[in-house]
Design a protein around this nucleic acid. Structure first.
Lengths: 196, 196
DNA sequence: ATAAAAAACTAATAAGTGTTAGTTTTGTAA
DNA sequence: TTACAAAACTAACACTTATTAGTTTTTTAT
């Protein structure tokens, strides 16, 4: 029947992964069947296996693509010469922009990583742990340099990460709140606080 | 074989719901089978149906128990005579304590509500929307009373809710960070900001 | 035009799902 | 002890799942 359409400048596999991300976000990994995915792609289910290894591979690709993007960004940020506050500012803004650009993938990576199987699950968790540790280091340095209050560094990181991760549930209000408004307000609140 | 043990001061049904919450959090709703749940309860799968209506009822009970607790707390908070900042302070602390008391249930309500079927799904969402609206009202009043910066009210609510919801991922560090430290630090950061 | 490779198809399989029916055991009250 | 109800059990069903095998169509390159 119809042939799988490759996404612009991407393989057919990429097109499948993209559709999978959409469905996995909408319905969850376990609740999405290969038949559903196939229908979305415009093909019969077994045809998918000409392009991918299996359902679990799809989840792996989505999760690690996201994880790698964040890891790379943080590594690049670390070596720049800026104040810690400026770095945190940029980190938060990066999360917000990623949420705009690849909402589905980010959502899936944040919500469905539990469905990964070892060794991918362990890899994913250790990569995330490493990301957290790097942020904690950053906050600690900010405290040492007296840029940042003497707050518990891990709690600070936790709060920031939780807040930006929760951005997914702003998607529902994208029309009401422009991205730049959100960005500036959230950065301001997280760094400067709510109280006048 | 073994009889289902009722949890202290609770029906057998409650015991099943409790075990279900644990499994649903650990593996996800769809990834948890009734046979697994039955094993955890110490019984064969069909025996569960002497106490519950079905798998979906379990999810409904968990989600709405949580939602109702938060709704009630907010309603009680609204009628008290305190500053808005104090109210927000208490609201954040309530979320943190709930996370301590009923981690499994909270996690499931936050992550698996998508698996609810209508009309429960719609009810759940509208209840959550109402909760958000009430918080937005609170922040707006705080701004009017000049207790709070002139920040976008919905963004503020979003940030707070995201941050406290992300507390689930602090559970891994419970031993390192006592609850009161977390509570004070997070409230401080959210209300006063990170920057010195 | 033709041969080779890629990718679609149909059919089928083995495993797992929630749930029901029917029966037996267990606990409770008279 | 006996009768009744609650709750366990076994067996089975109807359905869905991801995936494989084998075949046919489509695309690509010579």
């Amino acid at each position: 029947m119809a042939k799988i359409k490759a996404v612009a400048n991407g393989s057919k596999k990429d097109a499948i992964v993209k559709k999978a991300a959409g469905l996995f976000r909408q319905k969850g990994f376990k609740a999405t069947s290969m038949r559903e995915l196939a229908e979305k792609v415009g093909v019969e289910a077994p045809s998918l296996y000409n392009h991918i290894g299996g359902k679990s591979e799809l989840l792996q690709l989505i999760c690690f693509n996201v994880a790698n993007e964040f890891t790379i960004h943080l590594q690049q940020l670390e070596v720049t010469r800026q104040t810690v506050v400026k770095k945190l500012d940029q980190l938060i803004r990066f999360h917000i922009r990623m949420m705009l650009q690849c909402y589905d993938e980010l959502y899936v990576a944040n919500h469905e990583w539990k469905q990964l199987e070892d060794p991918y699950l362990s890899n994913f968790l250790s990569q995330r742990k490493h990301y957290e540790s790097s942020m904690v280091q950053l906050v600690k340095e900010g405290i040492k340099r007296k840029e940042i209050k003497n707050i518990h560094p891990y709690v600070a990181v936790l709060t920031i990460l939780s807040a930006v991760r929760g951005l997914e549930f702003w998607q529902r209000h994208k029309k009401d709140i422009p991205a730049d408004v959100l960005e500036n307000n959230m950065v301001n609140q997280l760094l400067n606080g709510l109280i006048k």
